Simulated assay, not measured.
Amino acid sequence: MASLHVYSVLVILFLTCGAVMATKENDQIIRENNCETKMGLPYVVEASTSIFVTGSISNKCCGKLVLGKVCHSALVNRTLENPLFKDISAATIIAKSIQTWNNCLALIDSPSLSA
């Protein structure tokens, strides 16, 4: 019985440490790639609002968003780790994140914008 208790504590400790490490990893990726600086805070907010709330994003923000998939993924993952978003399905958010990314890529690659 005691070994079950010790095992449970170790599992909880492992999961907690993993979550803390994931947060540090995303923060480090964001910092090392200057993600918030490259995109600009207003565009980070707009992209997040698009993914988490409205589903729409401006052409100008799309141009900033597609500067880097690494930044996009790290910002979404960091937001998912925020307790404020604990009630939102991670799978839904990831799907919306991919949809926003793909929509922006299509918009940026559109011949009408290139002309």
Rank of each mutant, 00 (worst) to 15 (best):
M1H: 13
M1L: 12
S3W: 12
S3C: 05
L4G: 10
L4M: 05
H5T: 02
Y7R: 11
S8W: 06
S8H: 10
V9C: 07
V11Y: 12
L13Y: 07
F14T: 14
F14Y: 15
F14W: 13
L15C: 13
L15Y: 13
L15Q: 14
T16Y: 12
T16R: 09
T16V: 14
C17I: 15
G18R: 13
V20G: 10
V20F: 14
V20Q: 12
A22M: 12
K24S: 09
E25Q: 12
E25P: 01
N26E: 10
N26G: 01
D27T: 08
Q28P: 04
I29W: 02
E32M: 09
E32R: 13
N33G: 02
C35Y: 01
E36I: 13
E36M: 11
K38H: 06
K38L: 13
K38S: 00
G40L: 07
L41T: 09
Y43A: 09
V44K: 06
E46T: 06
E46K: 10
A47D: 08
A47E: 07
S48W: 06
S48M: 13
T49S: 13
T49I: 04
S50L: 04
S50E: 09
I51S: 05
I51P: 01
F52Q: 09
F52A: 06
T54H: 11
T54R: 15
T54K: 15
G55A: 14
S56W: 15
I57Q: 12
I57L: 15
K60T: 13
C61G: 07
G63R: 15
L65F: 11
V66W: 05
V66R: 09
K69Q: 15
V70P: 01
C71T: 01
C71D: 00
C71F: 03
H72L: 02
H72A: 09
S73F: 05
A74C: 03
L75K: 00
V76R: 02
V76F: 02
N77T: 08
L80N: 09
L80W: 08
L80M: 11
E81M: 09
E81C: 02
P83I: 11
L84A: 11
F85S: 07
F85V: 13
K86H: 05
D87T: 08
I88G: 00
S89Y: 02
A90C: 04
A91D: 15
A95W: 03
K96V: 00
S97D: 15
S97Y: 05
I98H: 06
I98N: 08
W101N: 04
W101I: 03
W101F: 11
N102R: 09
N102H: 04
C104P: 06
C104W: 03
L105R: 10
L105F: 02
I108K: 06
I108G: 00
S110L: 03
S110N: 10
S110I: 02
P111N: 07
P111F: 01
S112L: 05
L113E: 00
A115F: 10
A115Y: 05
A115I: 01
